[in-house]
Design a protein around this nucleic acid. Structure first.
Lengths: 114, 114
DNA sequence: AGCAACATGTAGCTATCCTACCTATCCAGC
DNA sequence: GCTGGATAGGTAGGATAGCTACATGTTGCT
């Protein structure tokens, strides 16, 4: 198994929320946005994406509405107000987390974000 | 539960290996190095640190030797050759992972490492 | 004597990501 | 007309690994 197979643990939610920031997307489109936006690195199986979206919906962070386009049923998700707050918090959290890890690994402070 | 309780999943090993890069340390010292080097963010419970060190030792990435100092028994770990190679690979892997996540979150490419 | 810091460890829980599988539509190629 | 791939949604079960809670013992301060 790839050593980083579980590397997303704890960081998937913020990525999913971020893909919905610039407008609603359905599940498959979220999966594609993640794959393309990461240069193919995050090519997640549907068994990861759909349950995670359900989890976020249950938590009230995203809201889904069914629709039918070209005979294909889709569930479009959009960020809720709580989801937007969560995204902002998790984004800040990622920056701090990444800064801490990078400092420990490189022995130098993180490149300033300013 | 803290939202980032599982955030280390998949990234702990590289941090542990990195703390041993500048010389041998015993388990408790590794734990302290992680806590201090991260500004208190990674204050890991012993139930995380010791099993992880055992895992790395079983994998041949670090080697431990017992000693006694001031009546306290200590197990000092040092990086093996395989551990050094692993650290280099995982360090590169972290940079790529962090770059991919940051790109997705910030909408801009990662600061060049070159 | 009591308590914090030092030092090491294990058993069991839990979160969550992955594997493997299923259904169904649309369209291009044969 | 049929097959296969891309699109679109989903679930069940397994595996990994960090966390909680607990156990043991020493040193040193009050």
């Amino acid at each position: 198994m790839r050593s980083d197979a579980q590397a997303l643990k704890g960081h998937l939610d913020v990525l999913l929320l971020a893909t919905l920031e610039d407008g609603p997307r359905h599940g498959y489109a979220v999966k594609e946005a993640l794959r393309e936006g990461s240069g193919g690195r995050f090519d997640l199986p549907t068994g990861t994406v759909y349950p995670a979206l359900h989890r976020l919906a249950d938590a009230g962070l995203i809201a889904g509405t069914w629709s039918v386009t070209d005979g294909r049923r889709r569930r479009s998700y959009r960020l809720t107000a709580a989801g937007k707050r969560k995204l902002a918090g998790e984004r800040a959290n990622w920056r701090e987390f990444a800064a801490a890890v990078t400092t420990l690994l490189e022995g130098v402070p993180w490149p300033a974000t300013s």
